[in-house]
Design a protein around this nucleic acid. Sequence first.
DNA 1: TAGTTTGCTACACGGACGTGTAGTCTGAGG
DNA 2: CCTCAGACTACACGTCCGTGTAGCAAACTA
Lengths: 224, 224
Amino acid sequence: MNATPSTSHDDLTGRARIRDAALGVFAEHGVKGATVQAIASAAGVSTGLIRHHFGSKEGLRAACDAHAIGALLDEARRSLEEDAAAPGFAAAMYQSSEASARYLARALVEGSRSASDLFDAGTAMAERFLSERWPDRYPPGARSTRDAAAVMGAMHLGTLVLHTHLSRGMGADSLDPEHAPRVGAAMVGIYTTMADFFADEQGQRISDALSDGDAPSSDPREHS
Amino acid sequence: MNATPSTSHDDLTGRARIRDAALGVFAEHGVKGATVQAIASAAGVSTGLIRHHFGSKEGLRAACDAHAIGALLDEARRSLEEDAAAPGFAAAMYQSSEASARYLARALVEGSRSASDLFDAGTAMAERFLSERWPDRYPPGARSTRDAAAVMGAMHLGTLVLHTHLSRGMGADSLDPEHAPRVGAAMVGIYTTMADFFADEQGQRISDALSDGDAPSSDPREHS
DNA sequence: TAGTTTGCTACACGGACGTGTAGTCTGAGG
DNA sequence: CCTCAGACTACACGTCCGTGTAGCAAACTA
């Protein structure tokens, strides 16, 4: 009767087929853009069966949230309670399926409780990571620390949410496990390269201008 | 009769009010989730007037694309044709209104021709920026260069697309011109800090693992 | 002043979609 | 053999929403 327990003990059944189909259709067209008819067709069942199993479209969406994000969220919260830096969380994110990743990307934009909680958990982990390792630059609880943690979360998840455009630019599916490491490698390269840039004279001017509160004039690509 | 030319010579009129209202409703609920009735109510007009001015819902969407993204796209393309690094483009992005930024964020996820073109233009600028400044690390046309440019674009635009979550984490609207510079400042800090991290012993291991093609095990927050 | 265009509204049509209902089939338990 | 529960389907209902039509009032033209 409850939704979460039967997420994986019962797979291959109609219920699981519907959920997997919904994951894909929701990810591609959004919750509003997806129709139960399209999901039913993709799963090879009738619309009535969806209602039978999930009660309503919103119930199906909640089940998708629980399946695609719930496990990640649990892992993230477990990592936050432990003292050690999260080994399980990163592993869980990596082994989450491509379909779940696409769904999560949509959920982050369309607004989902689970997705928001996951973002907040990631931000909390980033804040602890920063303030434990560089307590002088990122004092725990300071505004600059919270800013940096939130921006870091947004930047990293940006590669997930914008995977369509990212894949187009890379010439390969950025969510495919075969190509995904290229994203991480590129990020490391960007970090070191941009650090050099902002240490230079011109980059320093931009950095100073940003600290003052006005826009720079020659930074290629800044957020809106 | 044609749609694009009258985007700004005629403001304050009903047409402009509809367009501005649509920008907000589309940004908040998505194109599918938005109803012409809701847009009409927000603009204080009837649904018939929307049809009179824009022909259809899709026509209104195209007008929103042209208004919110067209100017940015023109500026980006102009910057790409010139040799100098884009001063006008960054300035245009900064002075684009908050409503346009929200709309662009949605358009990037829901799929819009203009938004995709803008992402590609930004990626092209980033690629030129990288390969001109560090030709040894980022040779023009190399796969690693294209990867880095695309990832850089996705990361920077991630702070725009995920502005809802980012604002929650920062405790202030990240799109508000008053608080937006904090985002840029945080990014600069993250670049320098993470460069230090990846230069360390532990970070080096992660960096090496990413270059090999398998997932690391202790990086807090990696893309899916 | 008559005619035309333009901005705008009210209202109805038709289709799509979420939801509700009744019913069939299969398999397990007594 | 009976029955009862669960999986599953077919079909109808009601509503929402995009679209189409008709028409009014003001402004501009001649």
